[in-house]
Simulated scan of single mutants.
Amino acid sequence: MGRWAHTWTAAPQLTEPDNLPPAPYAGSRVMADATLRQTVRISAGGERIRLRFSNAFGTTPLALTRVTVALPSGGRAGVSAVVPGTVREVTFRGRASAAAPAGAQVVSDPVDFPLADGAVLAVTAYLAEGQAAGVTSHPGSRTTSHLAAGDRTGNADLADATPVEHWYFLSGVEVEPAAPVLALLGDSLTDGRGSTTNGHDRWPDLLFDRLGGFAAANQAIGGNRVLGDGLGPGALARLDRDVLALGGVRWLIVFEGVNDLGTAPADGQESVTADLIAAYGQIAVRAHAHDILVYGATLTPFGGHSYDDPRGRREAARQTVNTWIRTAGAFDAVIDFDRAVRDPADPRRLLAPYDGGDHLHLGPAGYRALAGAVPEHLL
């Protein structure tokens, strides 16, 4: 049997009410009798693909009535039209439909569908019954999806579709032959808040554009924390599902922890800092057991953001964490994102051209700086 690589991923989350689709696609059965067209930009290309749909947070089965793949019009993300003649049926054990039980996922049969490195793929699914409860999604898609009534999986154009800025159910695209996989465990800074919608300028995208030669599995969740649940389960809780269960992972970059510091009381930083450092060690130990090289990234500045308390206790905690990342030797290598984007004149703040506007998240120029800070020899 051939080996597969995850060339695109979206970490599953429970869909909060504000991130459910708009009417008429919400209600007692979400997306009932609806077609959902989503575009994703892969990293490493291949000759065959297969899809993964997640029902990780569903409390009822997720029934996929029909699924197709195609090339999007113009090769662009976020469009509702696909190139006529490129539509291919996706099957599951030879059948057009499949159901993922509550809490589970479903993997499609392989589809002969050659894709070049960095290509954009359109995935269209029809849900006749919809889902009653517990919709699984990835809200921080930075990519436009489209919803239309009825079974439109074979249609080239969904001109009357409703746009929505989320991914639903689709959690992975795999390619064969396999490339070595780089997994990324992070929060909104890796999920791409502040990047361009449909622009593919998150730092992992830009890193792939710069170096290539690997498949990128971006398993970041905006608002995520390492120690406890925030938006999505904490990194320690989701490490097995989101990283270790992926086939072919050779490297893991851990760039997460700012939300642990920022949401903890300012006068309780000593405790959370010690727990965060211990958690990094646990992530490294667990990944090393799977022969994965683990790279730790330093936490970037947040001076001027609400996380920045007047007495500077969270900034002091950030410095303590970064010193440990740089010097403790728990990681196989260190990627100094802090140094890459901080203001040399005021190191507790982001350099102004990199600041996405809230003094915590980056804009495209800042994400390009992060991508440029990853040493080529590490991959």
Rank of each mutant, 00 (worst) to 15 (best):
A328D: 12
R349H: 10
A279W: 08
D358R: 01
A237H: 12
T323G: 14
G247N: 09
A237E: 10
G304H: 01
G357P: 10
P347N: 02
N259G: 06
A317W: 05
W324Y: 15
P344H: 12
E256K: 13
A317K: 10
G312V: 05
T327R: 00
L360R: 00
G268I: 03
A274P: 08
I335E: 05
Y367I: 07
G296A: 08
I335M: 01
F302V: 04
L362Q: 10
L351M: 12
V243N: 05
R326A: 03
V334G: 07
A289P: 06
A284L: 09
A287K: 00
I292R: 09
R238A: 05
R250T: 10
E270Y: 11
G304L: 01
Y354T: 02
G372Y: 06
G248A: 10
R311D: 13
L236M: 07
E256P: 11
A278I: 06
L370F: 14
A317C: 13
A287P: 04
V258H: 03
H305C: 14
G312H: 01
T327N: 07
R342E: 12
N259I: 04
Q282I: 09
D267C: 06
L252Q: 01
R342L: 13
G366D: 11
A345W: 06
D267W: 13
A365H: 10
V341W: 09
R318H: 07
A279R: 04
A287F: 06
A235H: 02
L299T: 10
A289F: 09
H290K: 15
A279C: 04
G296Y: 07
Y354P: 00
A328G: 08
Y295I: 08
I325Y: 00
D336C: 12
Y367V: 05
A371F: 09
R313T: 02
G304C: 02
I325V: 13
T327S: 05
D338F: 10
W324K: 10
L276K: 07
S271K: 12
G312T: 03
L239R: 07
G247T: 14
I335T: 04
D275R: 15
L351V: 00
L239H: 11
I292N: 12
A340S: 12
R241C: 10
L276T: 05
A289C: 07
D242L: 02
V321W: 01
H361S: 12
I292K: 07
D291K: 14
V243A: 10
R339K: 13
A264E: 03
A297K: 00
H290T: 11
A345R: 15
D275Q: 15
Y295E: 08
R314I: 01
A333H: 03
A289E: 15
R311M: 13
H288S: 13
T300P: 01
E315I: 00
D346H: 13
R326P: 01
A279F: 04
W251C: 14
R250Q: 14
A328I: 10
P310R: 11
E256G: 11
P353E: 00
